[in-house]
Design a protein around this nucleic acid. Sequence first.
DNA 1: TTGACGAATGTTATATTATACGTTTCATTC
DNA 2: GAATGAAACGTATAATATAACATTCGTCAA
Lengths: 136, 136
Amino acid sequence: MRKGMRRRASAEYADIVLETLRKAKRPISAYEIISMSRADAAMAPPTAYRALERLIEMGLAHKLESLNAFVACSHSAHHNDMAFAICDSCGSVAEFMLPTLAKALGNWSRSKGFKLNASTIELHGECPTCCKADQR
Amino acid sequence: MRKGMRRRASAEYADIVLETLRKAKRPISAYEIISMSRADAAMAPPTAYRALERLIEMGLAHKLESLNAFVACSHSAHHNDMAFAICDSCGSVAEFMLPTLAKALGNWSRSKGFKLNASTIELHGECPTCCKADQR
DNA sequence: TTGACGAATGTTATATTATACGTTTCATTC
DNA sequence: GAATGAAACGTATAATATAACATTCGTCAA
Ligand SMILES: [Zn+2]
Ligand SMILES: [Zn+2]
Ligand SMILES: [Zn+2]
Ligand SMILES: [Zn+2]
């Protein structure tokens, strides 16, 4: 599809899914997206997964592999090499980017002849808020 | 389990699963483990998952979150902070450890007050062998 | 204008991954 | 030997994801 690209239904689904992800403020599964989305936007699993695929390609969402869940991107740019710190107590996620990290992985790859396409970096632990709560 | 059938010690299942993982030489799913294991060692999914859990705790196996698959550990020590380079062409995996990486993640965590418990670091791309094959 | 074509979308059914739950087993203790 | 309880077992089912097919809709040639 090139000319006259009408606003496709799937783009609408992507909007709805993104809206749902943003409202959630934490990682949610594809099936949670389906059930949390507007009642007038019922969608079958493949539709939700396709919308997610688009959002991820566009850098508007990420999949957290260690949770099998999805989250809205909280960055403006840098859609590659992002890292995530996941709180196992409250489920919150901090998205961040560390040049040192990207450099270290790039260097290792180059030195080993590994052609690096994508990286998954996910930390699990306890966020500052939950740490403080524990100490009380 | 019928009467007369001897109970299989869970440690024995762990041995069988580890043997299967080592034979595979690449990441395999829990269900592949079940079907690839010795015919005399039929096991139900929960049994396989429990064996895997034990092996992972013992540092003898790892779960690759981005593949939902498991692999035998190819290191003698260092069971934390390991990173994996996964070839999307041939499925081979290189397990490695980068002090720089661990340090960078540790520093970030400390500076943000995040209590780091575990890290998932998985690279996707093409291994040297497959890169060479592509160039031909 | 119209119908053939193909890409994008939608739907149904099913595959794959993982765990809740109730039962069985067996070492320990009396 | 019976009572006890922790560990491990398998059945059934939940949760995650995709294959395969049907439908829609823009494009373009006739
Ligand atoms: Zn992002
Ligand atoms: Zn928290
Ligand atoms: Zn290892
Ligand atoms: Zn390869």
